[in-house]
Design a protein around this nucleic acid. Structure first.
Length: 489
RNA sequence: GGUCAGAUGGCCGAGUGGCUAGGCAGAGGUCUGCAAAACCUCCCACAGCGGUUCGAAUCCGCUUCUGACCUCCA
């Protein structure tokens, strides 16, 4: 199933035909979370987006190696010597070991990803497990003459690198402007230039997360782990590097510089950056303290939440926007997503009950191609969903008797719905999952009794049954033919 | 201050030169004992001002506003 996929490359600022370096294999690296706090809505976006990217690549027949790291070494809070390791800070706050913080939030992150139906990456490397490789990379950069040591810390020489290479090409920075406007921070005396960045930081005596190195005890710099782990598992260069747009500078720019300095090779063919989730017009971020955790969304326990929202509502909400647009959080938007998702799920069930007619009265045949076209155009999941709504409309209209669908087209409709809704967009029917066999049998009994009451015009009883069930999230639907269907949710 | 993105109907959100995006909300109708759901119909927007063009939400210029990045961040 080969497709011509256009991908927007941040490096060239245009859409390019995606061609893997070594077909049918694809190597993709996505920046993972720093595990120093509970995962929030902002984290959900890149991982949901890239989950769909990978599902689609695999559907198209590619063999994907997907690497997504866990940052667990703790980077400095500020760009200065007095900066405190953020994992360490959290650990002190909670009176626990740093490793405990790391493991707890890693587990929370995994649980959140599972609930959102985000599949695990092929490899999930830890920064702390690659200290030796990071030290080796620093040595290479030093022998290339592009890093220097000061007081047990090692810094990357950005102006030196920029003499022969383009520093800023990914993010559109101009070095001279950076040199003029980069904020002056305390502790800069160790650096030759404000734009230089740390490859290795000396650990002071209180610092618990520390490793021995040729320059003394310390810990690796902020950008190094991604360069090291991506090249280790995917080679150099590899196909796609993804992450949030807020990482484009300086993080990804520095990754390029490090790799080029160490190996002389351009590390990445295509850079993909997802845009951010905003709340009241501002980006949702830990640093702005305006985030809603994924757990809070599921339970509705946050002052800004009117109620709880299910995991698939969150996933659908994210996929209803194109990944390069900002996506604004609001209760109204989430409620709309929930309704829309329910509509699609209900139509999938209708499809199973639908009887084929002689001919098809709507355009079913073009749906599949339209969905492929949308995905091939830089993963436009929003447009795919619009087409799924059209499929839902046809399905429901046929169920209501307003349209007919031939046997062949009915199979096509089912196939398209299943493929794009479940396999590629990775949505799940949450309601269906809740009812077991015995629940179905119980419902059958309840419905039979209620219908007996309705037959006797005992509507007080029949309505009471329906209302009570509604309270525990079970919806009864009386059909024209006298049967009653039920749904959870 | 610099760089880069945006500004789409009540809300969310696609769309880069001509053809209905879509969803949610709202109005009317069909169906129903009543509901819910569903279906049908309606609501036809593109920040402002110029320009290019037979034709612009879409291209160009200016203005206003917003955001991201320039410090950790998905």
């Amino acid at each position: 199933m080969s497709q011509d996929i256009l991908l927007y490359n941040s490096l060239t600022r245009k859409k390019e035909l995606f061609q893997p370096l070594h077909p049918p294999f694809i190597g993709i690296y996505v920046c993972g979370p720093t595990v120093y706090g509970p995962p929030h809505l902002g984290h959900a976006r890149p991982y949901v987006v890239f989950d769909v990217v990978i599902r689609y690549f695999e559907h198209c027949g590619f063999k994907v190696r997907y690497v997504r790291n866990i940052t667990d070494v703790g980077h400095l809070e500020g760009d200065c010597d007095e900066g405190e390791d953020k994992i360490l800070k959290r650990a002190r706050m909670e009176q626990v070991e740093p490793m405990e913080v790391v493991q707890r939030y890693t587990r929370e992150f995994h649980a959140a990803m599972d609930s959102l139906n985000v599949r695990s990456p092929s490899i999930e490397p830890l920064a702390s497990g690659h200290i030796i490789e990071q030290i080796e990379m620093i040595k290479k950069i030093m022998s290339a003459g592009l890093a220097y040591e000061t007081n047990g810390s090692v810094y990357f020489d950005v102006p030196g690198y920029a003499k022969n290479h383009s520093y800023g090409k990914l993010s559109g920075r101009v070095l001279d402007e950076l040199l003029t406007y980069t904020r002056e921070l305390e502790g800069k005396e160790e650096k030759r230039n404000a734009v230089d960045f740390a490859l290795w930081k000396k650990a002071d005596q209180r610092h618990l997360m520390r490793w021995p190195s040729p320059w003394g005890d310390g810990f690796p710099g902020w950008h190094l782990e991604c360069s090291v782990m991506s090249s280790k598992y995917l080679g150099e260069p590899f196909d796609i590097h993804g992450g949030g747009i807020d990482l484009q500078f300086p993080h990804h720019e520095c990754e390029i510089a490090q790799s080029v300095a160490a190996s002389g090779k351009e590390p990445v063919r295509c850079w993909m950056h997802n845009n951010l989730i905003t709340i009241n017009g501002r980006k949702m971020a830990k640093s702005l303290n305006n985030f809603i955790t994924i757990e809070q969304l599921f339970t509705g326990t946050h002052p800004l939440l009117k109620r709880s929202y299910s995991p698939m509502t969150i996933r659908f909400f994210i996929l209803q926007a194109h990944y390069r647009s900002t996506l604004d959080f609001s209760n109204e938007a989430l409620e709309a997503a929930e309704k829309g998702l329910q509509k699609i799920m209900a139509s999938v069930k209708n499809l199973l009950l639908l009887k084929a007619g002689a001919a098809t009265s709507s355009d079913v045949k073009s749906l599949r191609k339209k969905c492929y076209d949308a995905l091939n155009d830089d993963f436009n999941s929003a447009v795919v969903i619009a087409h799924l709504f059209e499929a839902a409309r046809i399905s429901n209209a046929a169920y209501a008797g307003h349209e007919t669908v031939s046997a062949e087209d009915l199979e096509e409709l089912k196939s398209v719905m299943n493929l794009f809704t479940f396999d590629i967009l990775g949505l799940k029917d949450e309601n269906f999952a809740q009812g077991g066999k015995s629940v179905e049998q119980l419902m059958e009994i309840i419905i039979t009794i209620r219908n007996r009451a309705r037959k006797n015009k005992d509507f007080a009883t029949s309505d009471a049954v329906r209302d009570e069930l509604k309270k525990i999230n079970i919806q009864l639907k009386d059909e024209k033919d006298g049967t009653t269907r039920w749904e959870m949710g």
